[in-house]
Design a protein around this nucleic acid. Sequence first.
DNA 1: TCAAAAGTGTTGTTTGTACACCCATGC
DNA 2: GCATGGGTGTACAAACAACACTTTTGA
Lengths: 247, 247
Amino acid sequence: MPSVWSSPDRPAYPHHALAAVLQVRAARLHVMLWRRENEPFAGAWALPGGPLLPDERLGASVARQLASKVEVTHLAHLEQLETRSDPERDPRGRTVATAYLGLIPSDVDPALPEDTGWHPVDRLPPTAFDHGSIVASALLRLRAKLSYTNVGYALAPPTFTVAELRDIYVAALGYDVTATNLQRVLLRRGVLEATGDMASPGRAGGRPAMLYRFASTALEVTDPFAVLRPPSERHGSGRRPQAANIP
Amino acid sequence: MPSVWSSPDRPAYPHHALAAVLQVRAARLHVMLWRRENEPFAGAWALPGGPLLPDERLGASVARQLASKVEVTHLAHLEQLETRSDPERDPRGRTVATAYLGLIPSDVDPALPEDTGWHPVDRLPPTAFDHGSIVASALLRLRAKLSYTNVGYALAPPTFTVAELRDIYVAALGYDVTATNLQRVLLRRGVLEATGDMASPGRAGGRPAMLYRFASTALEVTDPFAVLRPPSERHGSGRRPQAANIP
DNA sequence: TCAAAAGTGTTGTTTGTACACCCATGC
DNA sequence: GCATGGGTGTACAAACAACACTTTTGA
């Protein structure tokens, strides 16, 4: 097998896999960043990631590199985001980077290396390379998918009350959502299901809350676009169109 | 931390930019493919594309490579789709490829090189590499975006009747849409606007149709998700959430 | 008995589909 | 006038937001 290394007629580029790992912590959405020790961007914060290895796929590469930061089993969701190719993105020389979006449920608090920490997405420290804008992309992607898929499962604990879920959605979406309507929408869509258990009220009292869980922990499109749908099932074949790799 | 940059192995990979260019032709959605002359996959059909050059961004690379096939000015839309990294995707050796989705309006018929042609997406010839599944991804992306953005402008001529637009949507979506409701939805959303002109009826007669155009020829999200919207504008700040890089 | 928290009922609005009906033209 | 499309009007349904109201607990 020919070498993967560069030759004059086959220009080759170091390829990095990056992860924007998001988690709701203390009612705010955070992203995992590590502090660079060396130039370039010494002291700035960067997304975890690193070079793609010769017989690795990008998805596996991200997972491998994240393994040095957190237990990968905590990652409830991982999806490809976009590929950045600006020749100037790394001052040391040209690299191409493919970014992934990762999500961690709010109930785990993985031990992180010394140089790594969580930062609120709406108040990022100085970031290295183009990582700041990658975080912005990740945010947009997450917010979109929260609205029309069941990705919430990747941010929420295994079971939760509607109020707890509301706090997670509010943190992730960045705007207010009422528990009443959140419950109704997600139940109607079959995204949530009751566990049958109840949470005990806090010391302030109040009616005990039901515990819910996500009905599925695989990504599903739950709100196939309301518009331009195919003719209704009454006469037709009943097939709805594939609900898109949004992506 | 040891620098990966100074260490001897800094694996690099040839990177290809590919384009799945779609156009509605004769009431069917087609994709542009060229026939490979040489091994591997000699005789199979491939997406246009080629190697990323040393100071090129991926978007520019796709545009450059497409220029050898069609006039790039015909490309009404171009967006990044996804990056494929399977080590086995090219039997000659490892490559990474980033695919783009391109759209050409139905009223142009660009001259193509000898080896290049249009193929209905629902009846592809044998395809090279992973290009068949990339076409499938492009299709899903297009269909999703037709429903909640104004991408239609990139498939339609500058002006058109609702019936003509309907035919384009039907071809692209792969299921039936009524002209009546398509018109209503797109007008209500402000996606379409009347030109004031009329089309002359065919020789079979019939009421003359109004000519419409897309109000904007830049990609816009026209149906920010109907769900989990922020509190209504009546009291709040009125800001809707960023409508996502769907992408 | 009161405050706190959870959940349900109800109403109004928006947005879409379905389908009947009216309109303008060629022959 | 009549066939052939084009366009509008109306009815119906689904999905959601808003908000009042009821339920169930702790103190």
